[in-house]
Amino acid sequence: MTELLGPAEIRALAGRLGVVPTKRLGQNFVHDPNTVRRIVAAADLAPDDVVLEVGPGLGSLTLGLLAAGARVHAVEIDPVLAGALAETAAQHGASAGALTVHTADALRITAAELDPAPTALVANLPYNVAVPVVLNLLAELPTLRHGLVMVQKEVADRLIAGPGGKVYGIPSVKLAWYAAARSAGRVPPSVFWPVPNVDSGLVGFTRREPPRADVPRADVFRVVDAAFAQRRKTLRAALAGWAGGADRAAQVLVAAGVDPGARGEALGVGAFADIAAAANVTSTAPE
């Protein structure tokens, strides 16, 4: 039976490894076994899931995933932490064959490096790279069917926000391109070492088909970036640089069935895809 790490074990392990948590890497280690069990349960893993864990750190969540019977790819950028993870798992009763450790940057890892292919992402992500990591992995790993990530509460709110809200923006739309996202609860600072000065939030997601198959993702994301670069402007004005002029932007918006006087925060991902598709059509239409 796999034993989970508590506060004393976390500090002792960090001491043996000479690890001092750094803000640069966003290192806040979970030391509460009940929180780990809660995260694993909320991840709703199937028996055939292969889990990708990013930033396993000292191994708290890794042990929880292994205890649940998961096959785990652990991607850790810190070579000291990566080097100790397999031994920590073995010392706490985890199956040696169920864990593969990769000393790598999650922003650069490729599908070819992960065999068997991961189907679920479960991770405690540093706030400063949480959004790019999630989006990069969904783009790079089409086998990811679902996931649960723990991020700073402010980031969680942005990821799950829908059109019309104050925090709805680029992360909200881009995640919606890949998946349906939901809140899976709040996590207090007290379960981490060192204790952060903010709450964390759990974000669950389930992959779905993009809203349109006839327009490249990169084209849609360029529209999204332009629309939110100047949030207070109407889409006619905000998309002028992207479209080659305000009049051209208005033409594309009307063709997409979008009011040129609307603002980006009012649109769902499907509308952004419609705008990108309309731009492609009107740019190739005969004069």
Rank of each mutant, 00 (worst) to 15 (best):
I77N: 04
K166S: 15
Y127A: 07
R158M: 09
V281R: 11
A249C: 08
A246Q: 14
E140S: 15
A43D: 05
V155E: 08
D49T: 10
L137Q: 08
A176H: 02
S95V: 08
A255K: 05
T2D: 02
Q251P: 00
T2E: 04
L114N: 03
A130H: 11
D214W: 09
A176R: 03
R207Y: 13
A90S: 10
D115I: 11
G204T: 04
S190R: 14
G15E: 01
E265A: 12
K166T: 02
P126V: 09
V40Y: 03
V122N: 05
R38T: 13
W242E: 06
G59E: 06
A123Y: 08
A41S: 14
E87G: 10
L61T: 11
I170S: 04
L4N: 01
Q251F: 07
L202Y: 01
D259L: 09
V198L: 09
F221V: 00
R217E: 15
D48L: 11
N128H: 15
R208M: 13
V51F: 12
L85I: 06
V72G: 04
T100L: 06
P216Y: 05
F272K: 00
A74P: 11
V54A: 01
N124T: 14
L4V: 10
V19E: 03
N28K: 05
M150D: 12
G59I: 13
G268K: 09
H92K: 00
G6T: 04
M1L: 09
R248K: 13
H92I: 00
P56Y: 07
A278P: 11
D32P: 13
R217H: 12
Q251N: 03
A229L: 03
R236Q: 15
A84D: 07
V223T: 01
